[in-house]
Amino acid sequence: MDNEAPDPLIFAATLLAVARDGAARKTDRTRARLLAALARELGSGLTRHDLKVAEVTRTAGLAHGTFYRYFPDMPAAVETLIEEFSHFVQMHLVAARTGTETDSRERVKAATLVFARLFRRNAGLMRCLIGLAAEETAFARAYRRLNRDWYGRVAGAIARDREDGRPSEEHLPAAYALGGMIDEFLAQIYLRREPALAHLANDEERIAGILTDLWCFGAYGGKG
């Protein structure tokens, strides 16, 4: 088991890979250990209000005082983690769309499948992003930045597919509405654990298929 490659869609595993990289600077490795421990604590079901420096450093295998060499307090550490996680999610979504055929449905399904997998594997971090999106904090800014960049690309794709002469900005409301649909559906499954959707929790392909059908109907009028 120890020799198995880490899941590249689990952000904590990505951080641990940095922490174990002998070629990286010691300060970078230690910082990554702290952030990975923080991600694991959030993944265990704790909220950001429940987090304790002592528990995070214990999970990381570091002295208590080490935490304060990198972060002034726990909120700052969590903000840093969420900021980096936002970029991690965006990177995977862009890669999923870039690596597919030009057919719109295939692009949508590839990105939706990756997002469902990211959501499931990083549910604790997604809870932070979604739950705090309305607050005027670094959490919210990171989430809105992620959304703006992503939905701008989506609106551009809708404009190109429809070829109706309307600028991509006019398709932004549809992009936001469809994105909100996906966020809410995945939150029902992986955060609120809605019993009526429990049978889908282990079937990411089916989840992606359902959401892709709805997305293509709303964005492209059923084409794709």
Rank of each mutant, 00 (worst) to 15 (best):
A12R: 12
A13F: 01
L16R: 10
A24I: 06
R25E: 01
D28R: 08
T30K: 04
R31S: 11
A32F: 11
L34D: 05
L35Q: 03
A37D: 09
E41Y: 02
G43S: 06
G43W: 01
H49R: 08
D50C: 07
D50Q: 12
V53H: 03
V53K: 07
E55G: 15
T59Q: 13
G65Q: 12
T66S: 08
F67C: 00
Y68L: 05
Y70P: 06
F71H: 07
P75W: 02
V78N: 08
E83N: 12
E84Q: 13
S86P: 15
L93E: 03
A96R: 08
R97G: 05
T98W: 00
T98M: 00
G99V: 10
E101H: 13
T102W: 10
T102A: 15
R105C: 01
R107M: 05
K109V: 14
A110E: 13
A111W: 11
V114K: 05
R117C: 06
L118H: 12
F119P: 01
F119I: 07
F119C: 02
R120S: 06
R121Q: 06
R121N: 01
N122L: 13
L125V: 15
L129H: 10
A134C: 11
E135V: 08
A140K: 13
Y143D: 15
R145C: 03
L146H: 09
L146G: 10
R148S: 10
D149F: 07
W150Y: 11
G156I: 04
R162C: 04
D164A: 00
S168N: 15
E169G: 15
E169L: 13
E169A: 15
L172I: 09
L172H: 04
A174V: 00
A177C: 04
G180W: 04
I182T: 00
D183I: 12
Q188W: 15
I189C: 05
A201V: 12
A201F: 08
N202P: 02
D203W: 11
E205P: 01
R206G: 03
I210P: 04
L211S: 01
L211M: 04
L214F: 00
C216H: 02
F217V: 10
G218A: 05
A219G: 08
Y220R: 11
G221E: 05
K223V: 05
G224I: 04
